[in-house]
């Protein structure tokens, strides 16, 4: 039973990370490409971390909470780096898709 849950969590994490990477490759301009990695990392890595916490908690029979910290740091740093990259690219006027609404 545990193995099924772990497998599902790891698979879900992998799928979302993959979709994030596909977005990075496929979306047409810099600002849209930012969305792929910032979102995919949260649920993709989140699911894998939950799987890791469960696995090590059951294997070593002590509660493993390292993963909470990884999640915390990820949730703090991912939006900050996205924000800084967006700010920098606005500053140097990176090309944006022609049908972007309300261009700054």
């Amino acid at each position: 039973m545990l193995e099924i849950i772990l497998a599902v969590l790891v698979l879900v994490g992998a799928v979302f990370t993959l979709i994030g990477s596909i977005g990075l490759y496929k979306l047409p301009d810099f600002y849209m490409r930012l969305h792929g990695p910032t979102k995919a990392t949260t649920l993709g890595v989140g699911a894998i971390l939950v799987a890791s916490a469960l696995y090590f908690s059951f294997k070593e029979e002590t509660v493993s909470l390292h993963e909470v910290l990884v999640t915390l740091f990820l949730f703090i740093t991912a939006p900050v780096s996205a924000h800084l990259m967006a700010k920098a690219s606005l500053h140097i006027r990176t090309r944006m898709e022609s049908h972007t609404q309300n261009k700054p």
Binding site: Y31, L34, H35, T38, K39, T42, F75, A78, P79, A82, H83, A86, K87, L90, P104
Partner: peptide, 10 residues
């Protein structure tokens, strides 16, 4: 930045 389809830019 973490929620649906939006990233704060400036």
């Amino acid at each position: 930045s973490l929620t649906p389809g939006t990233v704060s830019c400036d």
